[in-house]
């Protein structure tokens, strides 16, 4: 954790303490694991579209939307419950105070993401690149990256966000159908998230074993 804290931009003790709290809050990798599962489920729901092309898939679309809504609603509760049940006795409990500039940061990140996405769309139109909707994938990657940065601000979030963006750009240049690209994109992002969360959790568990030994 110390290496992220040595940046000169963190000279303000408040920022430093807040960053330590953020690191501690994200040290179990649970949010990424759950996000990864959501992406893999999303990918699973795209596959019938790929396998049975041409059939109406509105039911699956509705199911997917409902599932995402339910997952978003219960994610916080789920993470809290798992932490309380399994991690609280040795990771500890902390309740974060809302960051005084959090709204400004969120608005800034959102504006930045919209500007980048808008610039990409303009560039695609200008260059008349093939299959415009495929470019939704890298744009999706940008949003995933920015969202993770705003929420976590840890190096591993940068890495997963960048991988999502790279995967999106790579898929644009394949000759696959949009449905196949979308399913592959979600599967890839899901697996990256699960790997990142899994490694983080495994490291935490190993730390615990070392402390107990």
């Amino acid at each position: 954790m110390q290496e992220h804290l040595s940046s000169p931009s963190l000279a303000n003790p408040d920022t430093l303490a807040h960053r330590m709290v953020q690191c501690a809050h994200n040290r179990d990798g649970l949010p990424e694991l759950i996000a990864g599962v959501i992406f893999v489920i999303a990918s699973g729901m795209c596959w019938p579209d790929v396998l049975f092309r041409g059939r109406p898939q509105q039911v699956l679309g509705l199911l997917f939307t409902a599932l995402v809504c339910v997952m978003c609603a219960i994610t916080n509760w789920l993470i809290k419950s798992i932490r309380q049940r399994y991690l609280l006795p040795w990771v500890g409990y902390v309740r974060l105070r809302p960051h005084p500039k959090s709204t400004k940061i969120k608005v800034f990140a959102l504006v930045q993401a919209l500007v980048v996405a808008g610039a990409m769309v303009a560039l695609i139109r200008y260059l008349e690149l093939r299959d415009l909707k495929l470019w939704l994938l890298p744009i999706n990657g940008i949003f995933i990256g920015v969202f993770q940065f705003v929420v976590g601000r840890l190096p591993r979030f940068w890495i997963t966000g960048s991988l999502a963006l790279c995967a999106g750009i790579f898929l644009v240049f394949t000759n696959w159908s949009f449905e196949l690209c979308l399913a592959t994109f979600y599967l890839f992002v899901g697996m990256v998230e699960i790997s990142a969360g899994g490694i983080t959790l495994a490291r935490l568990l190993r730390q615990r074993t070392e402390i107990e030994a």
């Binding site: 501690a24 990771v91 500890g92 409990y93 974060l96 105070r97």
Partner: peptide, 18 residues
């Protein structure tokens, strides 16, 4: 004190680890 200033509240275990 600096840590507690950045959070609403924290437990002993958290402070011990951090």
């Amino acid at each position: 004190v600096a840590l507690l200033n950045a959070v609403e509240e924290a437990d002993f275990q958290y402070l011990h680890q951090t």
